[in-house]
Design a protein around this nucleic acid. Structure first.
Lengths: 116, 116
DNA sequence: TTCCGTACCTAGTGTTGCTGACTACCACTA
DNA sequence: TAGTGGTAGTCAGCAACACTAGGTACGGAA
């Protein structure tokens, strides 16, 4: 997907992962797989794990170790109250940015169309 | 606006500035002012100038020095063909990301509402 | 035993926006 | 003359974050 996507994910990937956890608890390997299913094919595990460490240290998630039949124990993350608030802030920041960028997009379309 | 916005602007601010230049050519100080008018109150001049240097080095803009009555000469930037293409890539990357995040947002709303 | 899929972790790198300065030009004022 | 404020651009250093490119560990299949 390229460099542009990489840069654009900064700041949004955390929100995306929080949102995924808001749907239901999940562990790192699973989150990576879900991201890939949703089209973020280039996201690598290392990125997700580092992100999970960060949000755990900030206390946005609760962690439970669950044994797996197919490998090492899973660290299942679930969004707690603090994480829910953080997700709320993410949505408002995202909305702010999203609205302004969409405004720009439409203004430029008009500029092109009207040639003014 | 906080740290979250700072991170989220990484990767999008360049596209925003390209979009502003697509409306009409502008110089750094003016771009900063326009950004502030549009609600990006915390964006500082240094950030914009550094960004302009980058996109100039990548050949996305043409530059013209125009004397100013009120200070040093202005560097007026205008989007060239290459910049237009880059802006196009920005829109497609943005659309991709935007769609997926909005999908997540709606899914979570449904999760909350239906409580399932 | 070796390989593969699962599951997690880490050191180092590059890009980017911010902080907090600075230079330079001009007009106005004490 | 010196000082102030608005305009216009530049720079060094910092923090945050996604990526690169590895690594460990477990279990089952070849």
């Amino acid at each position: 997907m390229g460099k542009q996507m990489t840069e654009m994910l900064k700041g949004t990937l955390e929100g995306i992962v929080l949102a995924i956890l808001a749907e239901r608890p999940a562990y790192g390997y699973e989150i990576t797989a879900r991201l890939r299913d949703q089209g973020f094919t280039d996201i690598v595990e290392g990125t997700v794990y580092a992100l999970l460490v960060r949000i755990e240290q900030r206390g946005l998630v609760d962690v439970a170790k669950v044994p797996s039949e197919k490998g090492p124990p899973r660290k299942v993350y679930s969004l707690n109250t603090s994480g829910g608030e953080s997700l709320g802030e993410f949505w408002s920041t995202w909305s702010f940015l999203s609205e302004r960028i969409d405004q720009l997009h439409h203004r430029i379309d008009n500029t092109k169309t009207e040639g003014d």
